[in-house]
Design a protein around this nucleic acid. Structure first.
Ligand SMILES: [Mn+2]
Ligand SMILES: [Mn+2]
Ligand SMILES: [Zn+2]
Ligand SMILES: [Zn+2]
Lengths: 146, 146
DNA sequence: TCTCATTTTGATTTTCAATCTCAATTAACG
DNA sequence: CGTTAATTGAGATTGAAAATCAAAATGAGA
């Protein structure tokens, strides 16, 4: 079981890319913050560790993390890309509260099977999917309605 | 069965918004072009009818069409918003070929039910969802693999 | 039909995330 | 080390979308 750092280093080496302190710090900070971070948010955290690291490097490294399989890009219709950890994390979809943005991870094997079936029926081979359920969480409903 | 034009006029009146030639032309052109149009694409078509109509007005009107329920915004991860007709059009999701961008509209009642069930289980009330299946269509596979 | 407050328009500027550019720096490999 | 190719940070650039604003148009009422 390789650590994420080893995993990333291996990936970089395999791609003939360089292992730099910036990349390792960004990975480190990414791993420490669970959830669904935007590049901007990650940048803010990264600066605390090393304020000399630039925006562009965070953007670039986040792409590398996604390419390596360590991170996965998600989007919740906010106009910014978010990234979640993906190493050893099982596939899941999202249930998002439109009011407070709380995000719950969900999976339903039956849905996954039906998606496959639907694609096949149209002659497609599935490479991936995106399913986001939008709604109002219990707390927000309590506050909202009345 | 009101026509789309009547529907839109009624909506505008109800919102105390004005019925303008620009809005009616944009609606007209939107209705004539089926599929999933971007604002840019719609703008190009609109110019043929009236070249004095501006970009901004197309953006603004497309939003109004969506607000009224005549149009629905969709996005296929291209970085541009697209709109499809929504008046009297049943809900559906999309199956998209990642290579040629061909888009097939799909629905599966069983999936819709399971989505509802999943949301309820987490205490949410669903307001909507987005499900996009990405893959390779039969033709593209034939060309691609070999 | 005329008046006129309010809305809308087109041109333009602005925003904002994301990407690109480039000269200076640095990692990697022998 | 020394060489070379990759990387960096700062700043410029992009592109979609939204905001601004003065001029024009709508439409409710007189
Ligand atoms: Mn997640
Ligand atoms: Mn559609
Ligand atoms: Zn909530
Ligand atoms: Zn295809």
């Amino acid at each position: 079981m390789p650590t994420a750092h080893t995993f990333f280093s291996d990936y970089l080496a395999a791609q003939k890319l360089k292992i730099t302190p910036q990349r390792m710090i960004i990975l480190q900070v990414f791993l420490e913050n669970e959830g669904h971070m935007s590049s901007e948010e990650l940048y803010d955290e990264v600066r605390r560790v090393d304020e000399s690291i630039g925006q562009a490097t965070v953007y670039r490294t986040l792409k590398l993390l996604a390419d390596s399989g360590l991170a996965k890009q998600v989007d919740f219709k906010e106009g910014v890309a978010r990234y979640e950890q993906n190493l050893g994390v099982a596939h899941h979809d999202h249930l998002i509260c439109e009011r407070c943005k709380k995000t719950i991870e969900i999976v339903d094997e039956r849905i996954e099977r039906l998606q496959e079936e639907l694609a096949v029926r149209s002659g497609f081979v599935l490479t991936g999917h995106r399913m986001d359920l939008f709604g109002l969480c219990a707390e927000c409903r309590r506050r909202e309605d009345v």
